[in-house]
Design a protein around this nucleic acid. Structure first.
Lengths: 152, 152
DNA sequence: GCAGGATAGATGCATTTGCATCTACTTGAA
DNA sequence: TTCAAGTAGATGCAAATGCATCTATCCTGC
């Protein structure tokens, strides 16, 4: 229960980051992403997991590692491909609500099925069930804390 | 000790990935990276942590989330800035050994000091010492397993 | 020794990215 | 109300990225 040292924090982050690189590099090679890049998929996935089915651009931006302008254009491309729609936000004339089309939802599900299988394949044998749960719990708390205490 | 389900693996990965996005997004904003991008810094850091002080381009590439051609040009830029040197590999005429210059080592240390402090600041209060250690252990094992069992 | 395949890295080129900036809209205080 | 400051996204433009391909070198079996 000690307060962590600077070194402990840096080493844990470094380890987390390298693991992410190793896994992501392999996941990106999945042929499932030939039809749609992994960042584009990530946007569709985030939208699919959203209760209302619509998200503001700036909310979307919190989930993706892209500059605001890059996300703006990525969503524009998805729109042109017919995978999402962009409507003006009802309560804020500046805002844009992004929403999955049926085609977008269909493609997300299709890619998602293959992607989830690939994740399981890559992680298979690395950690047991309890360890995966611990990892999930720790990273979720890390994220929550960071989001809550360090606004952008 | 159960074997994980596909769902458990996918959810743990998702959580790890989102935490990485949240932390990385905030770390990138550090003014320490005004002099040198975070990817460029990452290459200098990887070189600085290397015993011999030199690394082959393809070894470097394992640590960074960049295509081979992108890393090739990133290192070319670092070379032009006088931060690294590129020599032909002694045992393999095709290979390039990348090595920090004194300037490169100096800049890495300078940015690194600020960066480590910023990591500690961002993570502060999120996890205690034991939890950070657990996170490090789990992610290190994940990475090792993935690297060992899924060559690129 | 040599031909065929594999591997390391460089390069042309189209696409994507981020920075700076711009416009439009909202908010809050006088 | 009005106006200054703040926020949401879009856009021009230069830089970075990835794909496909190219060259050079290495390795393997004959």
């Amino acid at each position: 229960m000690r307060t962590p040292t600077v070194r402990e924090a840096a080493e844990a982050w470094e380890s987390l980051f390298r693991a992410q690189v190793a896994v992501m590099r392999r996941l990106s090679r999945d042929p499932a992403f030939r039809r749609l890049g992994i960042k584009e998929y990530d946007v569709l996935f985030t939208l699919s997991a959203c209760p209302g089915g619509g998200l503001r651009l700036n909310e979307l931006n919190d989930h993706v590692l892209l500059a605001q302008s890059s996300l703006s254009r990525l969503v524009e491309r998805l729109d042109k491909q017919g995978l999402v729609t962009r409507e003006s936000a009802p309560e804020d004339g500046r805002g844009i609500v992004v929403r999955l089309t049926d085609a977008g939802r269909g493609l997300q599900r299709e890619i998602g099925r293959a992607h989830v299988r690939e994740i399981a394949r890559i992680l298979d044998g690395a950690l047991d069930s309890e360890e995966l749960a611990a990892l999930q719990r720790l990273t979720a708390r890390l994220r929550e804390h960071v989001v809550a205490n360090h606004p952008l």
